[in-house]
């Protein structure tokens, strides 16, 4: 052994010496090329990083700035195309005017629209969160074919166009729909009509949002380790205690994502509240579209857009808080 290890190490040293002290001319350009490759790669990387940024700026950032300007009454320049056909515009000079904003916010109906929207997205998100978590966690802790089927069914709306779904739900929950017929059979007339009501919007939004929420929570629940759940039961926790005290706290991040994404989705939704919702109050998405295309008021529509943006930003803050990593100690 001693003998064989000697020559081996000598050979190794020799090998190193050859490449280090006596680089063959053929290798030099290779090295240089490698260096320049890295340079190109660096450039490419920064370009790849820049592209999405540029994309965001051109297709997201600039339009946002333009609509902000429009809201403040800067009707000329790039906004002239939109404003030339618009109605009830309030032009602003200098920094601009808050006229369009005050006009809307002094309107009681608009404030009702905002609160209706807020109620719908909060309730919808909460219901979606509870449903998605219950379905996925239950299946994880007590797997059964029934829950698996429910989970599968919950994902189906993903494959049904929202317009078609909304229309069917509108019929289903209408005065001649299935639910009301059932209610009438039970002797409670008109108790289960949801079409044209905010409750209907909530139900439909839950229906629409559930698939994504279930998929996301399923991923979250899958990331819980068996051993951490087993250890809890081993420590004497019943399944409900395991869910509440061990699993749920670990799913905080997923829960935040589900809640916030559902909320933002509902906030910006149009089709569901348009088809199912009441004629008044309107959800902001419908309000914005009506104001823009029906009432032909682009400036006021920009205000509504901005209101939605602010609400979404609030949800974004919640998201940032909730998905932040826990820092303990110190």
């Amino acid at each position: 052994m001693a003998l064989s290890s000697g020559p081996l190490s000598a050979e190794l040293t020799a090998g190193v010496a050859v490449t280090d002290r006596d680089p063959s001319p053929a290798r030099r350009p290779g090295k240089r090329r490698r260096a320049s490759d890295e340079g190109t790669r660096g450039g490419l990387t920064s370009l790849l990083g820049f592209l999405p940024l540029a994309f965001l700026l051109v297709f997201g950032g600039i339009p946002i700035v333009l609509s902000l300007l429009l809201m403040l009454g800067h009707l000329g320049g790039p906004n002239s195309a939109v404003s030339s056909l618009g109605q009830d515009e309030i032009p602003g000079r200098g920094i601009g005017t808050l006229g369009a904003i005050t006009q809307l916010f002094e309107n009681h109906a608009y404030l009702q629209d905002i609160s209706a929207t807020a109620i719908v997205f909060v309730v919808t998100s909460a219901v979606v969160l509870v449903f998605a978590t219950t379905l996925t966690l239950w299946h994880r802790l007590r797997p059964s074919r029934a829950i698996a089927t429910l989970q599968f069914l919950a994902v189906i709306p993903l494959f049904i166009p929202v317009v078609i779904a909304s229309f069917s739900l509108w019929t289903f929950w209408g005065s001649r729909g299935f639910t009301n017929s059932l209610a009438q059979l039970a002797g409670i007339s008109n108790a289960l009509i949801f079409s044209g009501k905010l409750q209907g919007v909530v139900l439909a939004e839950v229906w629409v949002s559930l698939p994504f929420a279930v998929l996301l929570m399923r991923a979250g629940v899958a990331s819980l380790t068996d051993s951490s759940l087993d250890a809890a039961r081993d420590a004497g926790a019943r399944p409900l205690t395991v869910a509440w005290r061990i699993a749920l706290p670990q799913l905080r991040k997923e829960a935040t994502i589900v809640f916030c994404f559902t909320a933002v989705g509902v906030l910006g939704s149009f089709t569901v509240p348009y088809i199912i919702g009441p004629s008044s109050p309107l959800m902001l998405g419908v309000d914005a579209v009506n104001t823009f295309s029906s009432y032909n008021q682009p400036q006021q529509a920009a205000v509504i857009g901005f209101t939605i943006f602010v609400l979404a930003a609030l949800i974004g803050c919640l998201y940032a808080l909730g998905s932040r990593r826990r820092r303990v100690g110190r």
Binding site: D226, S227, S228, D230, A231, I246, Q250, R326
Partner: peptide, 14 residues
């Protein structure tokens, strides 16, 4: 009974 698991099984949030 009480079990000590193969994987690290402490509850990360506690």
């Amino acid at each position: 009974t009480a079990m000590l698991f193969q994987q690290l099984s402490l509850w990360p949030h506690l």
